[in-house]
């Protein structure tokens, strides 16, 4: 039963690199979009807030598969030319998870205590200085654990690229290994699942390192968690929307003595 395992591993590994590449590129795009649109949702300009909100709602409200199909098959009709599947996959991963990430950034910035904002006013800082020097550095610490979840969800989401024909890890199983050895499906899929588990652990280790760095920055201990696996809550699930924690969101609401 196990004599073919080395072959399975080497064949799967061919797709592993595409999975890794798509995940890393997707994370890079998602991270940039998260900050751009997360901060845009906190803008003082209503137009900017509305545009950011529309992006977030559309990409969170539809399904990743719809988005893959749309960019792969519908967009070319509007655009006039086709994108290669891997590029489509990376774009969709980045845009989809960037929308979830934007909510993380917004929530983290709003969770910075209002007192910190008042401290910056008492020191006459400009709005840009307040955000860059005081609010964002503190918000970063809050963001790391939910971003860890999000990036693992993104890794898992990269498996869907197989639907538009990207020969990543899952594709290697479904289209290469299974047709050859359908009687050993259990072994094949276990090998592939373990590859994904390994990648998820690597992401978590990386994020733990980041979290320690970020926590040191604000001079406090990182949150305690059981192990490299253990993470907070759900991840890609919609955040309980518009739940302000008495932070910057309440700036416009005045508080009494």
């Amino acid at each position: 039963m196990f004599e073919n395992v080395p072959e399975y591993i080497s064949t799967a590994a061919d797709g592993l690199w595409i999975t890794v590449g798509a995940t890393v590129a997707g994370i890079a795009i998602a991270a940039v979009l998260s900050f751009v649109f997360g901060l845009a949702m906190l803008s003082r300009l209503k137009t900017v807030r509305v545009i950011a909100r529309i992006y977030v709602e559309i990409w969170r409200g539809t399904s990743e598969v719809v988005q893959l199909y749309w960019v792969m098959f519908a967009l070319p009709i509007l655009l006039g030319y086709r994108l290669v599947p891997l590029l489509v996959g990376i774009l969709v991963l980045g845009l989809n998870f960037g929308a979830y990430g934007a909510e993380i950034v917004r929530g983290a910035v709003q969770s910075v205590p209002r007192a910190q904002y008042e401290g910056t006013i008492a020191l006459s800082m400009t709005p840009a200085q307040r955000m860059r020097r005081v609010i964002l550095p503190q918000a970063l610490v809050e963001m790391v654990p939910p971003f860890n979840n999000l990036f693992i969800q993104l890794l898992k989401g990269s498996a869907l690229l197989t639907i538009i024909g990207v020969s990543e890890l899952t594709h290697q199983g479904k289209e290469v290994l299974i047709p050859r050895n359908v009687s050993e499906a259990a072994t094949i899929w276990t090998v592939i699942l373990l590859f994904y588990l390994l990648l998820a652990i690597l992401i978590t280790m990386g994020m733990r390192w980041l979290e320690r760095r970020a926590a040191a920055l604000v001079g406090r201990q990182p949150t305690k968690r059981d192990s490299v696996f253990a993470r907070f809550g759900g991840g890609k699930d919609p955040l309980p929307a518009e739940q302000s924690k008495g932070g910057l969101a309440d700036l416009r609401r005045k508080g009494g003595e």
Partner: peptide, 26 residues
């Protein structure tokens, strides 16, 4: 229970779907 939860949570639903689709009949 912890190991099962973490394993299932950390791996793609799509691959789990394929696993079940090909292995359950066996």
């Amino acid at each position: 229970a912890w190991a099962v939860i973490e394993f299932i949570r950390s791996t793609p639903l799509l691959v789990q779907l394929f696993f079940a689709f090909y292995v359950l009949p066996d």
